[in-house]
């Protein structure tokens, strides 16, 4: 080695800027790819149509007296969101890394002056932005329907619903990316994503119901097990935000409201945040350590 060694890491801020620049470049590309892909279009259209339909159906028949239960719309939207949004985010996340790996493009981008962390974070940011945009369209048109037919009752809660839904999407995306990182082929990753969806949306709830009946679980146990599921946490957060308490959810909800009081929304939101961060962190570590391409 005859040439002068270049000192690694020129300046701290320069390195940070370059890091953010790379992440944004990946985010931008991921956003483009997602938005122009067929699955994304399909989900967005499905979500939008269903959201607007739910809004209209909830308003129909309530007359012109402004009964228009915003709450009712939300309850209807809740089911829809809990089905569609996790599916969308999990599949998007699952396809991200595994798909690139399968097409051979992953190696090519990794051969550029970028780090694996930047690649993964960039993809996460891009997909998250794409998902949030998709939901903005659905919620936006739905809000248009509400504005037209029902006025602005509960607009604050509606905004919170949007924020929480984006939180749910981020959490599910994070899980999807973890699945993507650990699976070698994109088919496997998608399969895992679907399975995770099934587990989170149906199986864990059904299992917990069975456990409640069979083992006669106590309310605090049911609550603890329940909020471990990000979907349940999301649902409870939406309901707390709408009704100021969880009494609607029976004894377990009353227990939660009584025990945690004002901290309950924060507790539930932090469950979502944890689900958005922890799987992504694990994905980062696995992606870095395994070094698969």
């Amino acid at each position: 080695m005859t040439t002068m060694a270049v000192q690694p890491g020129r300046t701290e801020s320069g390195a940070h800027l370059s890091r953010i620049g790379c992440i944004l470049a990946f985010a931008r590309r991921e956003f483009r790819d997602a938005v122009s892909s067929r699955w994304f279009l399909l989900y967005t259209i499905a979500f939008t149509v269903l959201a607007v339909a739910v809004s209209f159906m909830s308003l129909a028949g309530s007359g012109s007296q402004g009964f228009a239960g915003f709450g009712r719309t939300t309850a209807g939207l809740l089911n829809l969101i809990m089905l569609v949004v996790p599916l969308m985010a999990l599949i998007a996340g699952a396809g991200s890394i595994a798909g690139e790996r399968e097409r051979g493009t992953l190696l090519y981008v990794l051969a550029q002056p970028v780090s694996r962390v930047e690649v993964l974070l960039g993809k996460y940011v891009g997909l998250a932005a794409a998902l949030c945009c998709s939901m903005c369209i659905g919620f936006g048109l739905s809000a248009g329907a509400l504005a037209w037919r029902a006025g602005s009752v509960g607009i604050g809660a509606y905004v919170m619903l949007i924020v929480l839904t984006c939180g749910l999407a981020l959490a599910m995306l994070s899980v999807g990316m973890l699945l993507s990182v650990v699976s070698r082929r994109s088919g496997v990753a998608t399969g895992l994503g679907l399975f995770a969806w099934l587990v989170l949306v149906f199986l864990s709830d059904l299992g917990l119901m069975a456990g409640t009946i069979i083992f006669k679980l106590r309310v605090q146990e049911i609550f603890a097990l329940g909020i471990a599921n990000p979907l349940q946490a999301f649902k409870m957060a939406v309901i707390v935000n709408m009704n100021a308490s969880l009494d609607v959810l029976g004894p377990v909800g009353m227990y939660a409201s009584q025990t945690y009081g004002r901290t309950l929304p924060w507790l539930l939101a932090s469950v979502l945040v944890i689900w958005a961060i922890v799987p992504l962190l694990i994905a980062l570590i696995v992606f870095k350590k395994r070094g698969s391409i």
Binding site: V6, P8, G9, R29, R32, D33, S36, R103, G104, T105, L107, Y108, A111, Q112, P113, V114, S115, E118
Partner: peptide, 20 residues
């Protein structure tokens, strides 16, 4: 990352996103 900034890499077959 820094080391790769000194290297231009040409793969066996160009692996770009086909749709791009």
């Amino acid at each position: 990352k820094q080391a790769r900034s000194f290297i231009g890499y040409v793969p066996q077959e160009l692996a770009f996103h086909d749709d791009a």
